[in-house]
Design a protein around this nucleic acid. Structure first.
Lengths: 342, 342
DNA sequence: TTGTATGCGTTATCAA
DNA sequence: TTGATAACGCATACAA
């Protein structure tokens, strides 16, 4: 007993003694069906275990009520959470989702997008700023703007200009600027910045750090800024190296909790007290932030709001009540824990 | 400029001066087309930017080349990783995936399964033992065995008996039995076991712990076994409580890395040295295991192998070369780190 | 309120 | 090797 049953609208119509048009009307909640007829049809559908065939439906309507979700790597905790929220919200609005994890390779991204489009998804949501090329001059994002001619493209935590392209982003610049300023106000001056990515979002954060220093007349020191891979070990190693080479620093701000964990591990290994001698700030407020002792002060980027907002806007685009492309910005939120004393 | 272009097989046939049947043959790589005709058709397709309509195709073939993936919560790191691997493997085999995160609610699970089936997915992969009801006597898993009448159901890290149901699981019992034995052999006798779930897999692990104790003539003490939610804090609290109530223990084995992190935090807070005074073992070998200082010895459940094996078997089922339902068991692997001294 | 007829874009069967 | 044509299951414009 394999494969789907192949009950169709004709079977229902025959058994119910009505036309297929009437069955179809019942199926689609059309009002102009008498209650009596409707009940009969519904009863027959139930008896027969009938389920409508999505292909036939899609053929006429040319939509599957399905949204494509693309990301580079769904095992990244931040992205995994986004997928969860998006999927839940879409479902609440009667849409399903089809997931594509592409990896970092450009041609693989292009291929995935083509694949989703060949499945006739109704829109595409791209999660994570790393998905996009951060070089605005290159043609590397061209395939996305091209696709936007056919269907709405939403970017969660990413930015791309273009018609039919919608960005929902967290105010990363303001978040880092603000926490850096607070750090300075609390008396720290030698603040290291560790980051993971040169994406649009990554560069915004970095700029927030730099500008906050400048605004307080603190010199921006190149060796206090370091690009790590998203990796606990690398962060720990770099700080150890910095320390061993005689540099003094009393705070570390990071673009990801994993790097902050690395900073904590560096301090523990070097017998440096947290937060007295070293203050540490993470980013994303993930589970990693509460794994260490002390637990890590972290910037909550309000991912859930980003996702619900994206789906809300998408539904508005579908209903025609929103047509303006552009950015929606959501402010971040600082969660204070044991690695800071302000 | 919205919506998909609607080039079809007729446009191609007209422009190429052949029948739609011939176009279809070219599309499907049918051999009985002359090279000359094939080239012409391909050229026209390219010029027109034609892409076949999946709905029309699905209507005839009744398949979308899409696999449904179900889980309770894709933001769980273990599951997020599984989704990543599955999606990659399926893609390599020409299949796409449709994700459904259901939450823990039974009716929501049933609804999701119906939804996936209504989209005519070709098979369903269920990830995580928590998805299933662990009560074999209840009818709570009935909807799954029913669905198996229509399409193959695969379980990653879950078990359910039934025709057309395939389980790919890690040998959790053996893994915990083995690490507990090793712990005992290294001289520990007062071993606490913390676990997160009473799923099939969860109970197997617990049994491994109990049996290892019994095999070494060590008493199984009820208060040394504790069910936490998957939560760092709860684990820490319970151990603190145990310690404060005067119980002596020299090892903690857990069913999840998060609980092991809690154990480490307990030890740090109570100034108990690791691993000298307290030895700790985690489970799943996730990123959490390397967040703490010292890093946590953890059981690698070979999730990637589980996933690739599942997809391999699925493809065999599709090709008809595998028809036997049943379990595939993959052994776990102990990754030794700083929280143990054996 | 209900029914009839047609189109949607393929694949597959049968003839030529 | 090709072409004509019949499914495939549904939605919908138009008739009744």
């Amino acid at each position: 007993m394999k494969g789907y049953d192949t009950m169709n609208i004709y079977d229902v119509s025959a058994k119910a003694g009505v036309s297929i048009a009437t069955v179809s009307r019942v199926l689609n909640g059309n009002q102009s069906v008498s209650a009596k007829t409707r009940d009969k049809v519904l009863r027959v559908m139930d008896e027969l275990g009938y389920t409508p065939n999505v292909f036939a439906r899609g053929l006429g309507l040319n939509t599957m009520k399905t949204i494509g979700i693309m990301c580079t790597d769904s095992s990244d905790m931040y992205i995994a959470n986004a997928i969860f929220y998006l999927q839940r919200e879409l479902r609440n609005n009667g849409y399903d989702s089809m997931l594509c994890c592409t990896g970092g390779n450009l041609s693989s991204k292009q291929q995935s997008l083509e694949l989703l489009m060949s499945k006739r998804v109704d829109a595409i949501i791209i999660v994570g700023s790393k998905f996009l090329s951060s070089n605005p001059d290159s043609d590397d994002n061209r395939y996305i703007t091209d696709a936007a001619a056919s269907l709405p493209i939403f970017l969660i935590n990413g930015h791309l200009a273009g018609h039919n392209i919608y960005s929902i982003i967290c105010n990363d610049y303001a978040a880092v600027y603000s926490v850096t300023s607070e750090m300075i106000k609390s008396g720290r001056t030698d603040i290291v910045y560790l980051y993971t990515s040169t994406s649009h979002s990554g560069l915004n954060k970095l700029m927030g750090y730099k500008d906050a220093l400048s605004a307080n007349d603190i010199e921006v020191r190149p060796n206090f800024i370091h690009l790590c891979t998203k990796n606990i070990i690398r962060a720990k190693e770099y700080l150890t190296h910095l320390h061993d080479s005689g540099e003094d620093f009393d705070a570390v701000i990071t673009s990801d909790d994993s790097l902050a964990v690395g900073a904590v591990k560096y301090a523990l290994a070097s017998r440096i007290s947290i937060p007295d001698e070293l203050s540490i700030v993470g980013y994303n407020d993930s589970m990693l932030a509460i794994c260490t002792e002390p637990e890590i002060t972290s910037i909550d980027t309000r991912l859930e709001e980003l996702c619900t907002t994206a789906v809300d806007r998408l539904m508005k685009v579908f209903s025609g009540s929103e047509s303006e492309s552009g950015e929606t910005v959501i402010p971040a939120n600082l969660v204070k824990r044991g690695t800071t004393d302000f």
